[in-house]
Structures are given as structure tokens and as C-alpha cells.
């Protein structure tokens, strides 16, 4: 279970406060959608959960299964089951994709006391996952994300998520830059991973994604706080009325 309590965070470099007291709980098996206008702090929230040190937490806490993760570095959080699908996945020339996947998967496995996967088993899993996501496996011979289109990068993120089998999946604007066919493939990939012991935090600007990944709860983030929570119908209401009305009510 993810419990975010009164979370305040600012940009480390210039001290700008972005999150101003976020409260949010996501139970195992739950898909929680975070919506909000640009600049509301959605991406910051995802980075702070993943442990990016460009941000400083000044108040509050993030508990994952009852324990604070604030002192853990990003790799430790990943090993604890946290996964962030990036809005803009990075191209890293010189790092072969397969080597990266193997290193990541086996680092997590060994840190959990599991046995490292051998290359044939690894390849088998990568092939299965990439065919499900309709990805050409020859792409994985390239350096990490290098020369991938926007859509291919997003699929590659979901591919990593499938392989790493995290328990908390944070999807940051996974729908941006995807055409409708790619969106369906990616959403199917996510839906296949839904299970009782896995929680999702789906961050999106538009309702569109939520037609394909149907959330259990919807939370509206505005100026660094959750100003409204509800069921999936809240997303539809936002789609109809825009953010202005809800923001007005909260203010």
C-alpha cells in the first residue's frame, strides 16, 4: 500500500515549492488516476516517489507498505517494487538495451535474494513481452531508446515494467505522444499487469487514457495538493467541464 502524507517538496536548485501537502492512499490492486492541469505538480509527484534528487522533500512522508522510502535511493526503491514509466524516456547512447535489461532485472533479483536469470531465460522473457507489445525485437539491439520514436519509447517503458514486475507502477503521462493504436497496445499491456497485489498511479492530463485503463479512483491535483477525489466518473466530469469548475469549488 502506498500512503502519501502531507507531502511537501521543492526544486532543490532554486527552492521553488511544487508539492504543498499531498495526501493520497493507493491500496494493492487499485488503479488510481492523478489528473490535473499543467503545472499542478503531477510529474514532480512521480519523480519524488521514484527518488529523483532534483527535488527535496521538506515535510511529510511517503510510506510504501508501511515504511518510509524517503531515505532510499532510486535503485533501492526500484528493488522495493517501485517503477516509474517516464513521460520522456531517456536515450542513452552506448548502453545496449539488452545489457541494460539484464543488469536491471538481475540487480533487482539479487537484491531481493532471488537467483540471477541466465541469458536464455532472460531472452525468452524479453521476446514474450515484446511480442505482446507488438515491438520488433531487433529494436532491442540498439542502444537504450536511441532512435526510438515517441511511441516506441513508451512501449519500451511498458516492456521494462512487464519484465521487472514492480508492485507500484507510476505511469507519467504515458499517453502523451501516442496515436490511438499505440495507446491501445500500451493500455492492454498495463491492463494485463493489473492484479490484486499491484498498485497503479496513472498520471494523465486527459481522460482519453482512462477509457482504456479504467481507474478505481481519480484524484485531481492542483497547485501541489489533491483538491478532489472520486470514482472514475470524476474523470468524465472533468472531460465535460474542464478543470475550471472543480478548481473554483476548491478555492
Amino acid at each position: 500500500m502506498l500512503e502519501i502524507k502531507n507531502l511537501h517538496a521543492r526544486i532543490a536548485e532554486d527552492g521553488t515549492e511544487i508539492l504543498r501537502g499531498v495526501d493520497l492512499t493507493v491500496k494493492p490492486g487499485e488503479v488510481a488516476a492523478i489528473m490535473g492541469p499543467n503545472g499542478s505538480g503531477k510529474s514532480t509527484l512521480s519523480y519524488v516517489i521514484a527518488g529523483r534528487d532534483d527535488y527535496e522533500v521538506t515535510e511529510g512522508d511517503i510510506l510504501w507498505n508501511g515504511e518510509s522510502i524517503l531515505e532510499m535511493d532510486p535503485a533501492e526503491r526500484a528493488a522495493a517494487g517501485v517503477f516509474l514509466a517516464f513521460q520522456y524516456p531517456m536515450e542513452i547512447p552506448g548502453v545496449p538495451t539488452m545489457e541494460f535489461l539484464k543488469t536491471a532485472l538481475n540487480a533487482q533479483r539479487t537484491s531481493r535474494g532471488e537467483e540471477a536469470l541466465k541469458i536464455p531465460e532472460m531472452l525468452k522473457r524479453v521476446k514474450a513481452a515484446s511480442s505482446e507489445l507488438e515491438m520488433d525485437i531487433s529494436m532491442l539491439k540498439r542502444p537504450l531508446n536511441v532512435g526510438f520514436s515517441g511511441g516506441e519509447k513508451k512501449r519500451a517503458e511498458i516492456l521494462q515494467m512487464k519484465l521487472l514486475e514492480p508492485k507500484l507502477c507510476v505511469l507519467d503521462e504515458t499517453d502523451s505522444g501516442l496515436d490511438i493504436d499505440a495507446l491501445k497496445v500500451v493500455a492492454d499491456g498495463v491492463n494485463h499487469l493489473r492484479s490484486e497485489d499491484r498498485a497503479f498511479l496513472v498520471i494523465t492530463h486527459y481522460q482519453r487514457l482512462l477509457n482504456h485503463i479504467v481507474p478505481d479512483s481519480v484524484h485531481v491535483l492542483y497547485k501541489g495538493r489533491v483538491i478532489r477525489s472520486g470514482g472514475k466518473e470524476l474523470a468524465l466530469q472533468l472531460e465535460d467541464q474542464g478543470y475550471a469548475e472543480i478548481i473554483g469549488e476548491a478555492a
Binding site: 535511493d73 542513452i92 543488469t103 536491471a104 537484491s111
Partner: peptide, 28 residues
């Protein structure tokens, strides 16, 4: 640092992530 964060966010410990990136710098 952004590359380092990306690799670490996948569970690769910092020292290994740095080593991968140092190698990548020339392998590229």
C-alpha cells in the same frame, strides 16, 4: 545525472549505473 537517475530507477545500484555510463561514453 538524468541518465544516472533513469538507470537507478530500474534498480541498478549507483556504482554499477555509473560504470555503465562511463563505458557508454566511449562505446558510443
Amino acid at each position: 545525472e538524468a541518465h544516472l537517475f533513469y538507470l537507478m530507477s530500474r534498480g541498478i545500484p549507483e556504482n554499477r549505473a555509473r560504470a555503465l555510463l562511463v563505458k557508454a561514453f566511449v562505446a558510443e
